[in-house]
Design a protein around this nucleic acid. Structure first.
Length: 562
DNA sequence: ATCGTGGGCGCG
DNA sequence: AAAGCGCGCCCACGAT
């Protein structure tokens, strides 16, 4: 934060121009001017150069693509759509934001307008008065939380929106040749005339032979299941967990086939051709796409890249990757949120699960892992469910926090993250089920169904507080990383990696608790330090002085391969 | 032909 | 080795 006062300028899109309205901290208008289409980027860049500005915009995607295309980066925004969702649902203040349909993000991809979508001033947004009124209303809610939680949450959410747009433009450096080599080594060569690769053809032949059905379509679940039954494998499904239980010569090649088939269909040559261009994979991130505050993605399965392909994430010549993730972020958040000193003590150092074992609650690391995950997810059966009660003895405060969250959900209530993002209310249908079950003439079946749905929702709210707070930590981490990278000077030696980030370290990928940076070689150490400092700041912003370790696994490398 | 759904599996 | 949270995507299949 600089000491200089922050200017606030709203940008409102119209047909061929943009209206820029500057206003003061009380929302009073100071000036207003129209910027013809060709002048927006230059004008914005000039205002940025004068000192800190917060750009108030309907949503990042309205302006950032064009600004970034023109090589202009801004430092702070307020994304009204994203903050509307947060402030409308928050239970952190007595008077949350009134819901307004015009400030709800439209679900069908706002990325590319459909062919016949009319994008006019009315459709793409709102009048200047609408924008200013909405921003003022949001500020009132933000101010109502005297501890600044909502201010931090909205700033972090907005920074995320900005970073998501920048990462889309930057892309993940992707080495197509490495990807192709992995595919060929795993799946076998592609036949010149098309069709499945060699290794899959061989496996399919082998499986059909063992199952005695020469024309079996292995990709049809019902047909495969019937063939397995005929061969004496009486599985109820064709999932790999279940199949692995059976002893039959077809099983091993079948499991291998399913693995290869998945790789081919999800991230095979077709994926490579569709999603990697010019050495970059450009996923579209959907900030706040998950109710807990996590990001979702659309296109290319960005958040499901298989580990086997990580070797294809490779820095450009003269550049490096910083690959960093947090080990066991969620239980660490839980310990800190609950102020559970004992659990925080177990979390000291790299491996929280080892600490849980040392506490005497369980005897092996595996048990610790299942117990902790079971506590956060609400496991009731299996080994995980059996281990959870042991944690209640050792970490009563942490367990009380998640147990209370679950109870609130079962009762139809709302729970909140550390910064005040609140869970949605259960659906009207859910509430009907519950009230019907309490009627005098409710049947046993009604009661059972209601009970089950109540527990389902309780597991959701139990996890919400933990997953959502972890998402907040990660957003602040991201924002602080970007802030520090902005302070680094341009690198002198590295070849330009892209037009926008020619000589600059930049964020390239984000996945819940992990980041990948693409950085000029000479700045690798400085960028790594930025990532570490940012993590420390995120922890302090969320939990003040509470002593919780959030250690990073960080390496500087050519590729993202483990 | 096109759409919605469920099984299955990748990620955290 | 599983079942307990959150996702997106591919495929086959049945309904339209």
């Amino acid at each position: 934060m600089t000491g200089q006062a922050e200017r606030r300028i709203a940008l409102i899109a119209a047909v061929d121009a943009t209206l820029a309205v500057e206003f003061d901290g009380d929302g009073a208008e100071l000036s207003r001017r129209w910027l013809p289409a060709g002048e927006l980027s230059g004008w914005v860049a000039a205002r940025e150069a004068e000192g800190p500005v917060r750009w108030v915009i309907r949503t990042a995607h309205d302006f950032l693509p064009q600004l970034l295309r023109d090589g202009v980066r801004v430092n702070r925004i307020h994304d009204l759509l994203l903050c509307h969702a947060v402030l409308r649902d928050t239970a952190a203040v007595p008077h949350p934001l009134p819901a307004s349909p015009s400030w709800v993000r439209r679900e069908p991809s706002d990325d590319a307008p459909a062919l016949f979508d009319v994008v006019d001033a009315e459709d793409s947004g709102a009048s200047a008065e609408d924008v200013l009124d909405q921003y003022r209303a949001q500020l009132r809610v933000i101010e109502e939380a005297e501890d600044g939680r909502l201010r931090l949450l909205c700033a972090a959410e907005s920074a995320g929106a900005l970073i998501a747009e920048e990462m889309h433009v930057a892309g993940v450096p992707w080495h197509a040749q490495t990807h192709d080599e992995i595919l060929t080594a795993t799946l076998g060569a592609r036949p010149p005339g098309g069709g499945p690769p060699r290794r899959m053809v061989e496996l399919a032949e082998e499986i059909r032979e063992h199952l005695g059905d020469r024309s079996l379509n292995l990709d049809s679940q019902p047909k495969l299941l019937r063939a397995l039954h005929r061969a004496g494998v009486l599985a109820e499904s064709t999932s790999k967990w279940e199949l692995a239980e059976y002893d039959h010569p077809a099983i091993a090649p079948l499991l291998e086939y399913k693995k290869l088939s998945r790789l081919l269909s999800a991230n095979g040559w077709a994926w490579l051709a569709e999603w990697v261009h010019g050495g970059r994979f450009r996923p579209t991130y959907v900030v706040g796409g998950v109710v807990t505050g996590r990001w979702a993605s659309s296109g290319g399965g960005a958040l499901q890249l298989p580990r086997a392909l990580r070797a294809a994430v490779r820095a450009d010549a003269g550049w490096k990757l910083i690959v960093a993730d947090v080990a066991q972020l969620e239980p660490r958040m839980l310990a800190a949120m609950a102020g559970d000193e004992a659990m925080a003590h177990a979390a000291r150092g790299r491996d929280l699960y080892a600490g849980v074992v040392e506490s005497g609650a369980v005897s092996t690391r595996e048990e610790a892992k299942y117990a902790v995950l079971g506590a956060m997810y609400g496991a009731t059966t299996g080994d995980s469910g059996r281990l959870v009660p042991r944690l209640r003895k050792v970490y009563p405060r942490a367990m009380a926090l998640v147990d209370d969250a679950a109870r609130a959900g079962e009762d139809g209530g709302v729970v909140s993250t550390r910064l005040g993002r609140s869970s949605p209310k259960p659906s009207a249908h859910w509430q009907q089920l519950q009230s019907r079950a309490t009627d005098a003439d409710a049947g046993e079946a009604d009661v059972a169904v209601a009970r089950r749905r109540a527990r389902d929702w309780g597991r959701f709210t139990r996890n919400f507080v933990v997953q959502g707070t972890a998402a907040e930590w990660s957003l602040i981490w991201l924002a602080e990383i970007r802030h520090r990278l902005q302070q680094l000077p341009d690198a002198a030696t590295a070849a330009p990696a892209s037009a926008l980030f020619a000589h600059r370290a930049h964020l390239a990928f984000f996945l819940h608790d992990e980041v990948i940076l693409h950085v000029p070689e000479e700045q690798a150490e400085a960028a790594a330090a930025a990532v570490r400092e940012a993590a420390a700041v995120a922890t302090r912003r969320l939990f003040g002085g509470f002593p919780i370790d959030v250690p990073l696994d960080l390496r500087i490398a050519e590729s993202a391969e483990k």
